[in-house]
């Protein structure tokens, strides 16, 4: 669905290379995340993949189209939700959606149905300027779906959205994946990446440092230890870290269990953020 080969880019008049020899593919129906700190080159990759930048070196094809040769047909197949929601502020949510739907030949779901999906049906006739940041983000997401695109590009899709509505959005994104859509997410929110991405690419200083499944990464790089906290017989608390293997024959572990003094017990799993720092030597923020 997306194939990138030796992709490099330098902004005009810039002294440094923004992207350097990137290689990756994204198959149909995958949720693929670009993770990296600000200025790492994530947005530039997205701008190339959505055809806003065409003077790149190497090759970048989306759904069979080499991006630098794309025509208007290409935009019938992609939907883009930018990080900052943008609408005609004097018009209502519905008017904005109707206007944008006119730009496409492909017809998708009715705008009102899409609004219902993200809990915005009651805001359909409110002016865009009167919507909260979270509502605008949801409207932004809906606009990217107007023409039922095969590929979605979402930049920080849950940014500024309250937890309940963020959950609705995440479920909707997972539902779209089930429908066979390919979804590219750009984010520095590791929790979103952990939860919904099939694979993630760590981007630092314009280079791909690693591409893998977040769950596989977390499993492989976890410490394989169990951490216990318990009440001591002599009073106070104590903690213990044990290897996760052969716990049934571990006397210390069994003793704590039988003492009925256990406070908490958890495996020490690496977070995606830990792995990012370990692999790239950089923090995400």
């Amino acid at each position: 669905m997306i194939k990138v080969n030796q992709l490099s880019y330098r902004y005009p008049r810039s002294h440094h290379q923004t992207l350097t020899e990137l290689n990756f593919t994204v198959p149909k129906g995958e949720i693929f995340g670009f993770l990296g700190p600000s200025g790492a080159g994530k947005s530039t990759i997205q701008k190339i993949l959505i055809g806003l930048i065409k003077d790149y070196q190497g090759s970048a094809t989306v759904n069979g189209y080499e991006i630098r040769e794309t025509t208007s047909d290409f935009y019938e197949q992609i939907g883009v939700a930018f990080e900052f929601p943008n609408f005609y502020s004097k018009f209502t949510a519905m008017e904005n959606l109707k206007l944008f739907s006119k730009f496409y030949n492909r017809k998708g779901q009715e705008p009102l149905e899409l609004l219902k999906h993200v809990g915005l049906e009651n805001a359909a006739h409110l002016k865009a300027s009167s919507l909260s940041k979270g509502m605008k983000m949801r409207l932004n997401f809906v606009r990217a779906l107007l023409h039922d695109p095969a590929i979605l590009f979402l930049d920080e899709p849950t940014s500024g959205i309250d937890p309940t509505n963020a959950r609705t959005m995440i479920d909707y994104i997972l539902d779209l994946k089930q429908q066979g859509k390919t979804i590219i997410i750009t984010t520095h929110n590791m929790h979103i990446a952990e939860e919904i991405c099939d694979r993630v690419a760590f981007i630092v200083e314009g280079k791909v440092k690693l591409i893998d499944s977040p769950h596989k990464l977390m499993r492989e790089r976890s410490k394989q230890t169990l951490h216990l906290t318990y009440h001591k017989e002599s009073g106070g608390m104590s903690s213990l870290t044990l290897p996760i293997t052969n716990l049934a024959s571990n006397q210390q572990f069994m003793k704590v269990l039988k003492s009925n003094q256990l406070i908490s017990m958890y495996t020490e799993e690496a977070t995606l953020e830990d792995i990012f720092i370990e692999v790239t030597g950089r923090e995400l923020t």
């Binding site: 806003l52 208007s72 930018f82 944008f100 496409y104």
Partner: peptide
């Protein structure tokens, strides 16, 4: 400023349209 031009640029209308 409002980012609407950028949003139109990624539709079949494109920036040139």
């Amino acid at each position: 400023d409002e980012g609407v031009a950028m949003s139109i640029a990624v539709t079949p209308f494109q920036l040139k349209g």
